[in-house]
């Protein structure tokens, strides 16, 4: 039997909102350490890696490892039926072909359950090595979302150039060109609002704005976002989910033909 109960049910609502536009279906791999999900978008240039640790749930039971293939649009529709303050429980019998979501209102007066058919997905799994990146940028997630939204009006690609002075986001297109420079925050009094850059060597890479705007759907999950870059490898955009895990997006850089 698998059962995962989360008092902060809004986390699961936000997680689905953060991945349902990029992925159509994915497998939730559950074991006693928690829930992992890894899937590429249809074009295979971006990937989502979600981790929700068992110890972040208010109750977590996983008698046998279980992989549940789900249509993410359906899951998003079900989770839209949960209130922001509801407790959400996900449960499934061993080798079941359905999963049940139970929503309990804070005063326990309303309990809803939604049963959904599981899918047989044989999605390939990529091995992503732990990597030391040349540049990592920690910044307010709302700031990053704003930059992606603003610059994507100027062109379908964004150049991210990181040096020890700071990070520059640029885009050019028919209407002109745009540059946004963020300097490293000097006095870090409020960590959440700081721009913190760790740079071993400068990196400049180009990415498709469309995917970056999909990634920023995760903004409500974390006040900060971390960008990790090295020459000629995919960008990593990470949103930490407090006390339970993270959601990481990977995006292949655009390279000259």
């Amino acid at each position: 039997m698998f059962e995962a109960r989360l008092l902060r049910g809004s986390i699961l609502k936000k997680v689905l909102e953060a991945i349902k536009d990029l992925l159509t279906q994915a497998t939730f791999d559950c074991d006693d350490s928690g829930i992992q999900l890894q899937a590429m978008d249809n074009s295979h240039v971006s990937l989502v890696s979600l981790q929700l640790r068992a110890d972040g749930f208010d109750k977590y039971r996983c008698d046998r490892n279980i992989s549940m293939g789900m249509n993410l649009n359906s899951v998003a529709k079900i989770l839209k039926c949960a209130g922001d303050k509801d407790t959400v429980t996900m449960k499934a019998q061993d080798n079941a072909d359905t999963v049940t979501f139970v929503f309990e209102s804070p005063n326990q007066e309303k309990v809803s359950d939604y049963e959904m058919k599981l899918m047989n997905l044989d999605l390939e799994h990529l091995g992503i090595p732990e990597t030391e990146y040349s540049c990592t940028i920690r910044m307010p997630s709302a700031e990053f979302a704003r930059i992606c939204r603003d610059l994507s009006q100027f062109g379908d690609s964004m150049v991210i150039a990181c040096t020890k002075e700071g990070v520059k986001f640029s885009a050019t297109g028919e209407i002109g060109s745009a540059n946004i420079k963020l300097a490293q925050t000097a006095s870090v009094d409020k960590e959440e609002e700081a721009v913190i850059i760790e740079m071993d060597e400068p990196v400049t890479l180009t990415f498709a704005c469309q995917y970056l705007n999909y990634f920023t759907k995760a903004t409500s999950l974390s006040p900060q976002v971390q960008l990790s870059m090295s020459a000629d490898v995919p960008l990593v955009v990470e949103y930490r989910i407090q006390d339970i895990g993270h959601i990481r997006y990977y995006l292949a850089p655009k390279i000259e033909d």
Binding site: E124, P234, A252, I255
Partner: peptide, 14 residues
């Protein structure tokens, strides 16, 4: 023009 590699170019399929 530019292109993007599929992520299998960067990460090993397990």
């Amino acid at each position: 023009a530019t292109h993007q590699h599929c992520l299998r170019v960067y990460y090993q399929v397990q």
